[in-house]
Design a protein around this nucleic acid. Sequence first.
DNA 1: GCAAAAGTGTTACAGATACACCCATGC
DNA 2: GCATGGGTGTATCTGTAACACTTTTGC
Lengths: 245, 245
Amino acid sequence: MFLKSSKHIPQLTVDCVIFGFHHKKLKLILSKLKLEKDIYALPGGFVLQEEDIEDAAKRVLFERTGIEDVYLEELGTFGRANRISDEDFQLFSHLAKELYPDVEPPINEKNQKMRLVSIAYYALVDFEKVIPKKIDLDESCDWYDSQDLPHMIFDHREMAEKGLEVLRDNLDKKLLFNNLLSETFTMRELQELYETVYDKPFPANNFQKKILDLNILERLDKKFTGAKSKAPYLYRLKSNLSNKG
Amino acid sequence: MFLKSSKHIPQLTVDCVIFGFHHKKLKLILSKLKLEKDIYALPGGFVLQEEDIEDAAKRVLFERTGIEDVYLEELGTFGRANRISDEDFQLFSHLAKELYPDVEPPINEKNQKMRLVSIAYYALVDFEKVIPKKIDLDESCDWYDSQDLPHMIFDHREMAEKGLEVLRDNLDKKLLFNNLLSETFTMRELQELYETVYDKPFPANNFQKKILDLNILERLDKKFTGAKSKAPYLYRLKSNLSNKG
DNA sequence: GCAAAAGTGTTACAGATACACCCATGC
DNA sequence: GCATGGGTGTATCTGTAACACTTTTGC
């Protein structure tokens, strides 16, 4: 989360729900803020005056993950007038003053807390390729289980939940799964991703048929892991079908 | 389209794609701006500092249609840095100066055109109940055919097209049809709405079965119009299922 | 050979589509 | 009666779900 300066649009921010898939769990990146209490935040920041809103989200994403060309899609606007509680505002402006004494705080002339509107995005990344990076306001920055979220500032929990909801709507419909897996993956890994996101079992035979009938995967060599069972095939999205957002 | 004052968030607006259905055409409300050239705009305005973004959209909607409790849903953010062309900005700021000489124009300290970000919404209303109302900046305000849109300012045409796209995604999935029809309607009227929105024929028998099997309509008396053919039944959404946004 | 997991095939069901038909209304 | 459009029923198709089975791997 960045603070604003004159180069930024004053009352507008972006926040990103960055999803990764690891060990049958859907994870997302959160910052632990430098505060007495344990309070977490989604990666976010202000938008530059000359910057497309989506580019601001991409900038935040790159700052926190070090990767580009990620699937990115808007979740919607979080624009309730009272989306920032008095308590959260106190905590946050205190933190802001300590770390950025020379930057205009998010307070108006009458010394009231200032209205902030946030555009939320969700991003899908390969968990293996990303080590979350903290910035100045963070005590730490790491992956957290999307099913077991800690206490989050502002309306960030609502954003995370909206992210999950939209991911459930789109994972299958828009065939986004490759963005959450390594470049090559087994059918079981893909199935487990579906089972995690949709929170229900998918019978292996029907699942395989459904996916292969889409004709978007190419079958590669088998993956020999040393397990005392049949070696599964590896698959990869056909090279002409990559779908970064 | 309103201009900003200190009571408003400086660089943020809302715009509304207000849909109605009439004579087998999907219509939307546009303002013809008071300009030399024929340029049209979606109803919109700035957001008050103490106002939820969605409430700002509802306010615009009420100003232009005189009705409340309408289905309203966000389309997304229109936030490209160059979404307002130099030409459109000249036209619009000229208009603004004439009509609101005492209101701060959307120009920054360096006299450059100011960045505006807009949150777009779409609304579904009963065409019969709405007479579009013009405001000061409008030469006129009326219904226009969504398939034959005139030249529109800024990126308003993109918004209208996005509205159509989202309506197509949601009309059937979220069963929104009652919001575009009168309280009571015939099966044929409903079918014609579907045929217009999805731009394809729906066989009457299968369509009726599909809709009635949803179990969300109650059948009322027949509608005798004097036509020399069988009188169709009237239907109404079951009273417990109203779905205003 | 055997246990574990991968992979294939075949049947059963449900929702959508297509075709054929009957009914009410005003002249 | 008859033309017009409304309304209903039944067969067909297609994609999904359910069940049964074979194959490969390491010990």
